[in-house]
Design a binder for these strands. Structure first.
Lengths: 348, 348
DNA sequence: CTGAAAGCGCTTACAG
DNA sequence: CTGAAAGCGCTTACAG
């Protein structure tokens, strides 16, 4: 088909070096066990033949014969390289690239996966998934069936972001939002606040649940937090906050927090004097009237690196020993105190 | 090695459907020629067996048997996904991703290539290059030997950016810097300028030569341009400009132009009143005292798309007919008039 | 120490 | 219309 005229094979090398093709393979793969012992002379002869040719092993054949390919798959549920998605994917991809370099692996991006309902499908007629030794999955929303199928087929993979939607045991590397939320809540309490509202989108994801759980945990403490699920219309918010006598608003993410600030500002509230604001998510790059938002800083590059490391571990560990490795890892982020969570009644 | 227990093969499907493995392959690949005619009934039976299983063809085996893989390689001479490189690579990668989606191809990034002297090496012991149907090469500086070897081995590839360092016929998609430079020079002449200096790094690349050639062409026209090769120390520049009685400075790229502006500003020159400034390169994202720079806008996304299209064409055209396809393509960029190239003597 | 053989999963002539 | 066979380039038991 492609007609590979310039292609040199092991057989050719074997002919030149005057040995069998098997021996060439042995030399190439440094097979030097107890049964096989290749004298340095032969070894040298083969080496030289290879150097003088343009031989490179055919990765397809290697793979077919059962070896690792040193290829890691990267599957993103949305396009990863658009300017808009760079905000989220950029640091992750950067981390993945670096980690792959370190591991000596190439990266296969499954850009061909057909898009359905705005999401790519992992499994399809012509998926090249199997060409990779394993795969990292990225995306805000993942498909539960995909995850289950990967587990049943025992294909090594790691999800970026906490996943426990499924019964299946999904390996992942995520962020401990619960712990971060606890710290931020405690901080608000320290600053004298007693009542807060947590504005969220009522999404059904593991991290959303983590945040809600942390908010619920606050119940017993000095700061009482009322969760409030909202849609696109935030006009009821000022009333709700007044009703709850809240002096702090937490929002699910920085974008939502910005929308909230807009509405509260229009309602004539002094921000953050009368009402402090904080996001329970990454706030890098977000500001409120020049002030850095209070919220979290997430080690996205590190997550990516950790995910690849875990994937590599899964690949090189025989399935029966998978119990040995910690396949669900939560990384600790950092609280960004910022300038929008201030002391209660603080005019500033 | 990886132990693929969940793996379904054509043989398995054949067993279920009660046909031969050959027939399964035929059905899968829609082989429906003159000699082979598979009745709809059999076809249906096979289809159903496939649907009910989790069968997906093994890409390694397909490839080994000589078929396309629908995998396009992406080789960058530097890391592509770092925050710094995003400026240059971002739009290109975005274009590549979109084009690959359109072509139904996956993308293999050769992140494993060992780095030598700050550049990745394309050919090495374990290159997975051959797994791809073809490859796009990106980077400011490419290795001539790499290019020649790709040509001799008849491996389909396309360079992004003009390449004519080698004797070998290198397929590329680039920008017509010469034409753009001509336009910008003409524009400066229109604005009344008669003498200009072209500040460059004296690099030996095709595009550098294109710009120099265009500058030389200006000789006969109303605007006389003196080329000036510079190193890191630009302190001689004000004197040089005064000596040449120049009222315009062209620079090789926007970064260099910024450095030039700094030096001239410190020398007390009014910019752009006394001296107009323009870059013979992309100026998007660059400003001089709030003013958009004069220079070019390059259709980077389009270049990427065009490069992939060309690559696909090369892959699907038998080598003997390669003469038929235009393998060296220059795209027209756009002159960004900006606000730093102003009328001669213009105070503004 | 080294080679002939089987096999990985697929495709494509080639015979029925 | 359909199957048995060869072959893609490699690796790894298995015999010498």
């Amino acid at each position: 088909m492609t007609g590979k005229p310039g292609k040199v094979t092991q057989r050719e090398i074997a002919r030149i070096a005057g040995v069998s093709q098997t021996t060439v393979s042995m030399v190439l793969n440094d097979r030097d066990g107890s049964n096989i012992r290749i004298p340095d002379a032969t070894r040298e002869r083969v080496r030289r033949a290879i150097e003088q040719s343009t031989y490179v092993a055919d990765p397809a054949a290697r793979r077919l014969a059962g070896l690792d390919n040193k290829i890691l798959g990267v599957f993103t549920y949305e396009s990863a390289l658009t300017p808009e998605s760079m905000d989220f994917y950029g640091p992750l991809l950067n981390g993945i690239e670096r980690a792959a370099e370190g591991l000596g692996c190439d990266l296969l991006f499954f850009t061909s996966s057909p898009v359905e309902e705005g999401r790519r499908r992992l499994f399809h007629r012509n998926t090249r998934l199997r060409l990779a030794d394993g795969c990292v999955l990225l995306g805000q929303q993942m498909d539960g069936d995909d995850l289950e199928r990967l587990v049943t087929e025992q294909f090594p993979f790691v999800a970026v972001g906490r996943r426990d939607e499924t019964d299946a045991h999904v390996p992942y590397v995520g962020i401990d939002y619960g712990a971060l939320t606890d710290v931020l809540v405690a901080r608000a309490a320290e600053l004298g606040h007693e009542r807060a509202v947590y504005v969220h989108r009522d999404r059904d994801s593991p991290t959303a649940r983590d945040r809600l759980a942390a908010v619920a945990r606050a119940e017993g403490g000095p700061l009482h937090v009322t969760p409030a699920a909202v849609g696109d219309d935030l006009s009821g918010l000022p009333g709700l906050i007044a009703g709850a006598a809240a002096t702090v608003v937490f929002a699910e993410d920085a974008f939502l927090l910005e929308d909230v600030a807009l509405v509260l500002g229009e309602a004539g509230l002094d921000l953050p004097g009368a009402v402090s604001l904080a996001a329970l998510a990454e706030v890098r790059g977000h500001r409120l009237n020049e002030r850095p938002l209070s919220g979290f800083h997430l080690p996205r590059q590190q997550i990516a690196a950790e995910a690849l490391a875990l994937l590599q571990q899964l690949i090189s560990t025989p399935p029966e020993e998978h119990g040995t490795v910690a396949t669900q890892r939560l990384l600790q982020g950092e609280v960004a105190f910022g300038d929008t969570l201030v002391a209660r009644g603080g005019a500033r």
